[in-house]
Design a protein around this nucleic acid. Sequence first.
DNA 1: CCTACCGATCGGTAGG
DNA 2: CCTACCGATCGGTAGG
Lengths: 188, 188
Amino acid sequence: MEHGVALASVEGLEGLTLGRLATDLGMSKAGVLGHFGTKEALQLATLETGAAAFRRLVWEPARDAEPGLPRLRAICEAWITYMETARDTFPGGCLFTTASVEFDARDGALRDAVARLSGLWRRRLALEARAAVAAGDLPDDTDPEQIAYELVGLYMALNQEIQLFGAPDAGDRTRRALDRLLGPRPSD
Amino acid sequence: MEHGVALASVEGLEGLTLGRLATDLGMSKAGVLGHFGTKEALQLATLETGAAAFRRLVWEPARDAEPGLPRLRAICEAWITYMETARDTFPGGCLFTTASVEFDARDGALRDAVARLSGLWRRRLALEARAAVAAGDLPDDTDPEQIAYELVGLYMALNQEIQLFGAPDAGDRTRRALDRLLGPRPSD
DNA sequence: CCTACCGATCGGTAGG
DNA sequence: CCTACCGATCGGTAGG
């Protein structure tokens, strides 16, 4: 599964072929297929394995931070670290950005799964933003959904900046945008 | 070429196969291939055709606006319209967002072409932002590259909002983010 | 988990 | 532009 996630992050979930995966793992195609039944089931399992890694790398490190703005900032910082350093797990960059544009114009279980995960994470970001408003750490007229929407865009830009342009200052660019979106960090 | 652009926006530039394109056009595979020589040449030509449509739909409508903030705002508004209404040209959404994540982890002419186009457009956005600062329409300490970076993220989020989530209020969400990034529009 | 195989499709070529 | 064909690879099955 780990190798499947790595392959899919580079080639996409459609480019994750049974033959390629089997060769890389030193197995037969039928052997790989036996574990999943169909290619679509393999793709779904790969997406779920990637999602578990994302949760571990981005959500979990922020779990102990105080709900609201502190936790939102912790999530955003872990998210930058994920983009910059998860090269062994996701050598081709964020699997969910790739999967989103790969399936956003099709029907089926893959599209539904990608939309479900992306929607879930968007709502979780909005939840923290809402708590931040309630605590008085963000202005009263802040729209939590708007914050979540802009954050997602910021991290898709970060993924492009790292993968397509190989920009070394990508993380700092994102932090500057976060300062503008969430207010400057306390340490500034 | 038009049909190739439409196909690639849905299936990706790798999913644009000679056989599929030939069938759709009522031609033979060899007939299609004869025009381009290789699949890669077809993909590059498709990308360039899409780029011409992007220039026509997004850059040209803003050409007569005053350089600086007025033109930047005109570009941003045309860009929203492009995302919302270019369904006949790009039924699968923005071809350049798709191509960027499709090739950002590979080597080759396609990756180079996508990076060249994206870089060109980023620089053009930064150019207008710089003019806006010089004219006093944006704060003196504004980083034009930062504005361009955040704009790109905003439009990748808009593409996802339309294609993956089918959100009808996606354009207005983007306009709200633009107000925060560039200041409220004069009409407000 | 394997070998052996299936029909379909891939990019591309030969020859006209 | 076509027909006819190439070897490689696709997802998947049969049978063990």
